[in-house]
Design a binder for these strands. Structure first.
Lengths: 112, 112
DNA sequence: GTCCATATGTAGCGGTCCTACTTATGAACT
DNA sequence: AGTTCATAAGTAGGACCGCTACATATGGAC
């Protein structure tokens, strides 16, 4: 998976990874890896700055804790984050439909 | 449609627009607009440089002509372009499956 | 005679992800 | 005791790529 394709879609993925409950950055990374069967293996240099952006935007809220001697920054979806996530999901469906239409001539495989 | 999302996918769209036959830049633009029901309306500053890139990469071949007093640069898919297109289509399906998996927990709506 | 659709093009901006590197702890293995 | 690896977080700088804004030119409509 060429990761440059990800441009613009990363935020949605991170928000989605936090939907089921609070997670720290490293755990978000692993959650994405697992939910995609290892196909999406993002480097820390992508994850952490992106989480900082989302926090600055008020979509997630972070708090420090120490577990087993290691400091962790744990993130939770804010109310705004939850709304943003559903917006991003809708955006993704629209986007995928448009690209599929242009590429295949049909909105989805086995639809319509 | 926020167009930044397009990053990395544009080449595939342009190649697809040329699959059914030769077209000049302006026509490619219109073909994409029509094949997506007007949802994908790319500016000329996006189309032309991208076509130049594809030509430089040997995926399309361009030639000048004059029709009705207006000069046109008409592009055709090369053999390499045809192969690239099918690769890009496969990439798109993989990419869409991965993002859908991470976003929705399922590869496609109403699949599997 | 002006305006719009057609037709092509470039320069530079901005956003965003990646590469490469740094720091730190705990556990395992030798 | 020392090395190595997984865990955990971070930054700086670069590269890529589509967009905005602008420039140029013709033909037809009004």
């Amino acid at each position: 998976m060429k990761a440059e394709l990800l441009k613009g879609h990363l935020d949605a993925l991170l928000l989605a990874a936090l939907e089921s409950g609070p997670r720290h950055g490293y755990a978000v990374m692993e959650a994405l890896r697992e939910s995609t069967g290892g196909q999406l293996d993002l480097p820390t240099g992508t994850i952490y700055p992106a989480l900082h952006r989302l926090e600055a935007a008020g979509l997630i809220a972070g708090s420090w804790s120490v577990v087993g001697g290691r400091r962790r920054r744990c993130y939770v979806l804010t109310e705004a984050g939850r709304k943003a996530l559903s917006g991003r999901r809708a955006d993704w469906r629209d986007f995928a439909a448009v690209i599929s239409a242009a590429l295949e001539g049909a909105p989805w495989p086995s639809t319509a």
